[in-house]
Design a binder for these strands. Structure first.
Lengths: 334, 334
DNA sequence: GCCGTGCGTTGTATCGATATATTGAGCGCG
DNA sequence: CGCGCTCAATATATCGATACAACGCACGGC
């Protein structure tokens, strides 16, 4: 590896002069600068960022830690990246590996401190694990779980979103709406909050939600949604609407409904949550609660930036508002 | 920030002893070790990885540089991650920002050398830009462009994949198959290669491909695919099949076809490329060329690992084979 | 002719952890 | 009682870039 000292020797100057040429920190004579640049070109020198980071105590880099690189997180990350870059920093994505347990304790926490700040997306982590994130680093937690008070947190308005979608389908004539992928599992806040929203919409409409219509999925994939949906159909439970906990699950449900010969939205209305890019285009268009990537990204970056700027006030807990995007999978005005 | 020296002082030992306790390098007396561990706990010490990396000359980290965190790349990254981790290394995703031009020259190349190796996915970069990636770092290029000979490269069998999909639709009765999103643009290898595959299938079947059926898209999104498809429909050009250059584009095409009242696959057969997760579930199931993430990931990681282990033989250019996954958007045996 | 000013350049300490060589204490054995 | 051996613990140099203070030199003013 070619070091700055090598360049200095080749150009017949001191290392500091090389550094000053490259960083334009102190002024350097024109003729000297030219000699240095020539040597840099010649040797193919590139600054060692690791050394610079150590010396500077900063990396100008922010990590976004996600459970997987897929779908929702990929889309959100694409929103976050430009905002971080606008601050002159750089964004990298890290994945909490499969074995979140040991990972969190052993490696990740130590690794995170190579970054100036961390956006931590919690899906697989529970409160207890979050408790041991006691790093002094600026950190903002994203996601639908409860987090310790002292951590900055951005989440979606899950309840109101689910209620919007459900109310919309009730309004358009559905009376038996499945809450697919929702749950009563207190440990899984997202699916629970969305179930509560579903219940609220029922009550708001003067109806009583039936717990039998809360149908769990084995995993939050299209496959999981499809299988749960097929089970419901096979069981004979009558239904005329599906609120799926995510668009991914909704897609699985749609696949099952079509296979079973049920028409969407004529026989069954369908709505999801997240408003993924694809949801607009999947025929007949999936009605979905927009996950407000823009708002979430903006809030998260703002909170993070504030911490990185030295602010040490109390943590903020932002609930990003959501809105319903109506498409062909639910019925028009009747 | 609490340094190793702070721990050493608190425990009444030298820094090396602390280091030895934490890294289990040289043996340390039981009683001393306990004192050190207590001090570590007490002060909440965490090793400074930047310093360690500088000293060690390694970071045990590999970067996967992608044009966006979305879709195809997100899925591929999820395949790559476990393979890298199996080598005791860590994977992070970096995004080539919008202004690839300056980015490539100024920052990225320097940044890349904080990693032990780099997987570089080229979509927005052209050959010339790749030329200036003259770093000595282990690097493997992924993607459908031509790359300089000296760089290790993994690509898909684009031509044969496109031919598979086209031949399949020809076999099942289509005679006028659009090559949607394909092109004659020599600078855009992927769309060109896939067009060539489409042509081959025609010739192989004793038919002559009509260049009028090569329809470009404004961008490689579902929106772009949808708009191009709508234009074709409006133009009155007769067609009975669509080979879309990617599944994302295919989804847009499907959306347009359904809106136009065309039945898939009865009126128009449709096939895509990439076999994204969603393609299996989007009714009626999108026939697609599987992008062989597993094979691509495996080859890329293998080539990278070889370089990181010190191998300096000639670069290898791997063409990962693909296969066709038949679903409902094309017709069954007739 | 001497001193002050300003600009360009350089030497040295530092960031925090670790590899290597070395010191020191304890113990067995002749 | 002393020599050598082992094992634990330490001192120091190093990774590569940069902040800071100091230095040398040319030039202008009196």
């Amino acid at each position: 590896m070619v070091r700055m000292a090598d360049v200095a020797r080749a150009a017949g100057v001191s290392v500091m002069t090389v550094s000053n040429v490259l960083n334009e920190r102190l002024p350097v004579g024109e003729e000297t600068r030219a000699r240095v640049m020539a040597a840099v070109e010649d040797l193919g020198y590139e600054v060692n960022l690791t050394a610079r980071h150590l010396r500077a105590g900063r990396t100008d880099t922010v990590a976004f830690v996600v459970p997987s690189f897929h779908d929702y997180f990929g889309e959100l990350a694409d929103q976050v990246a430009p905002l971080i870059e606008a601050q002159g920093r750089h964004l990298v994505l890290e994945r909490t590996s499969a074995n979140a347990q040991q990972e969190m304790e052993a490696l990740s926490v130590a690794r995170l401190q190579t970054y100036d700040g961390v956006l931590l997306s919690v899906a697989g982590l529970d409160l207890e694990q979050l408790g041991l994130v006691r790093t002094a680093k600026p950190i903002v937690v994203l996601g639908e779980r409860d987090v310790p008070d002292h951590l900055n947190h951005v989440r979606l308005a899950n309840e109101s979103g689910a209620a919007l979608a459900t109310a919309h389908m009730l309004e358009r004539g559905s009376r038996r709406i499945l809450a697919l992928g929702c749950s009563f599992d207190a440990a899984h806040m997202m699916t629970t909050d969305r179930r509560v929203g579903w219940e609220h919409a029922y009550r708001e409409a003067g109806l009583t939600p039936d717990p039998a219509y809360v149908v769990p999925v084995s995993d939050y994939t299209s496959r999981g949604g499809r299988e749960a949906m097929l089970d419901v159909i096979a069981s004979g439970l009558p239904f005329d609407g599906v609120f799926a906990v995510t668009d991914i699950v909704a897609l699985g449900a749609l696949s099952a409904l079509v296979d079973a010969g049920l028409r969407v939205p004529d026989d069954v209305q369908l709505a999801g949550f997240d408003n993924l890019d694809m949801s607009r285009f999947i025929p007949p268009g999936i009605t979905s609660v927009d996950a407000n990537h823009e708002g979430v990204a903006e809030a998260a970056v703002r909170l993070l930036h504030r911490q990185m700027s030295g602010w040490t006030g109390p943590a903020e807990h932002v609930v990003a508002p959501v809105r319903l995007v109506v498409r062909g999978s639910t019925r028009g005005d009747s």
